[in-house]
Design a protein around this nucleic acid. Structure first.
Lengths: 327, 327
DNA sequence: ACTTAATGTGGTATCGATACCATAGATCTT
DNA sequence: AAGATCTATGGTATCGATACCACATTAAGT
């Protein structure tokens, strides 16, 4: 492998001069610069990243910890992150936890000495992880979950839930079911649920226990939830609010199996604006969270922090209701 | 930041001994080991990855270049890659080209000095890129495209296309349309098309020009293709083979708009076994390429190569037809 | 013309780890 | 009992880059 030393020898200058050319720093004569650049061109020399990092304490790499890249939310966020980071010469080191909380901790430790900053697409806010996060001596931004003393880019899950619930009510629905997820996921599990119940209560509408289901994050789980709701309820709801599109689509597939029509027999809403949502039949009413922007914003704030510039500690992003035929 | 030197001082041993403890190499007395481990525990010391890399010439990082992570094929492959790589302590550096061929070249250069190996989820096999690839002094594996002298993990696109075409014919279809992509994508564009035409010819079935469309990789493009086929054909086909599920689903959405029934008015097949495919109405007949296995296999072969073990230069993976109601 | 500043270049220490060698004492051979 | 071998440890060079300083040389300022 060709090193800076070789380039220096071949161009008849010192390593220092080559380094100056490489980094466009200090004084270099046109003549010397040209010679060095030619040699670099000829040899296809690329500086060693780790040698550079060792000296400069900068890796130009951002670690991204996420639960999966198989669903649209994280993959969109990563796309946004990548787009913004690459503009500034940063790269992404991917740490996929596969929904394993242990690994989240492991990766945090592992990344510490390899990256300049960390983006955490979080799924839970348990104390153990929160403590670990606060102990990380590195700029870190959490996406999707709000926590004290940590940089966060979040969505307004509570008001989204209220708004979409209000929309169902406005459409005339009085008996509304709810398909949620575990509340250890504070944003998706707790806040969306709270928004739903608060809005229902504000309209003096009761929510029967039989109409409420807790799922994991997959389509089949939504299918089962709808089955449970229908089989268990004495008086059935006329609409169901599912906290993710995938759950709503699972629910819809069960309705279809039973020969029930959406929205006539049962209206449905989801959250996420997944690609699926517009191609199911009928197209699903949902909320666009603009995940790519979230990624871009997170990257911007993180880079600002790294570069010692001013940055926003908390950022709550905008959203957009997408009204389609499922209601 | 605490370094190996600090640990050595605190544990009253030399840096060499700490290094031996860290790497479980050479001789270390129980006593010394315990002292070192305690200090490491207390301080939360993590060795500097780049210092280590500089000395050992190993980064334990694999670069992954892909066109997007927003579609299921690459994201599944990356999941498989990650799963296998993390078992061996390797991490993934993600390079998203956003379908930009220029960036593919750039990233190849950029990664050279930062990773131990490269995985390329390729979309085209143009000479420029192929030459670059062959010049890379690093183990590299291509996924999804076959090329000479390069490690490849591929699918048997040609036979898949023949088989699924044969299936349509066996179901009684004689007039079959085709929605493909640009042939610079050799696997998806060229091989699948060739398989389709060869199988049709083997059955002495003609394919009218009006039934053939070339798309880009998105759902809307499939929608437009179906529109074109229907509007242009004098005698319309009774089935259409789309080379990806997304194209098929786009086509299906156009049929639905026009009040046409699948499969009665028009049968449809795709390739890819996307999650969407089972939740559209009717569920789509498609082919499962087991992308996660492809990722895992690619990782295994790449690691074998890196470790100087024996590895397979070419690997053609299995597939599975999934018969659903769209035919 | 003589100080001061700007330009250009090279030498050396250093980042934080590992590799490799030297050394010393304990244990084993024969 | 002398040499060989095993165990345990430390010292030093090194990986490939940058930082920083020292020193020329040239240009500018008064």
């Amino acid at each position: 492998m060709v090193t800076i030393k070789d380039i220096a020898a071949m161009a008849n200058v010192s390593r220092s001069t080559v380094s100056r050319v490489l980094n466009n720093s200090g004084y270099v004569s046109e003549e010397a610069r040209k010679r060095v650049e030619e040699v670099i061109e000829q040899t296809g020399y690329v500086p060693s990243g780790y040698a550079k990092s060792l000296r400069t304490k900068q890796t130009k790499v951002i670690g991204v910890i996420l639960p999966t890249i198989q669903t649209e939310t994280p993959s969109r966020v990563v796309t946004g992150l990548g787009r913004e980071l690459s503009k500034h010469g940063y790269q992404i080191l991917l740490a996929n936890t596969d929904h394993d909380k242990e690994k989240e901790l492991e990766y945090l430790d592992l990344l510490i000495r390899q990256v300049d900053g960390i983006v955490l697409i979080a799924t839970n806010t348990e104390p153990e992880i929160m403590e670990k996060i606060k102990s990380i001596p590195l700029p870190l931004v959490m996406i999707g979950q709000e926590t004290e003393k940590v940089m966060c880019v979040t969505y307004d899950d509570y008001h989204v839930a209220r708004e979409i619930t209000a929309f169902l009510i406005q459409k005339g629905h009085r008996r509304i079911g709810f398909i949620g997820v575990d509340e250890t996921d504070r944003a998706v599990g707790y806040m969306r649920k709270k928004g739903f119940f608060d809005e229902m209560q504000a309209h003096h509408l009761a929510v029967e226990e039989a109409w409420v289901e807790k799922c994991v994050f997959d389509i089949y789980s939504g299918h089962e939830a709808m089955k449970n709701i229908l089989n268990r309820s004495i008086q059935q709801p006329t609409a169901v609010f599912a906290v993710t599109d995938r759950l709503a689509i699972g629910a819809m597939s069960y309705l279809k199996e039973q020969g029930l029509e959406t929205p006539q027999d049962m209206a449905l809403v989801g959250i996420g604006a997944s690609e699926l949502s517009q191609y199911v039949d009928p197209p699903l009413t949902t909320v666009d969270y603009k995940n790519e922007s979230a990624g871009e914003e997170a990257a911007k704030q993180l880079l600002a922090h790294i570069q010692g510039k001013e940055y926003q500690k908390k950022l709550v992003l905008d959203y957009r209701l997408i009204l389609r035929d499922s209601v």
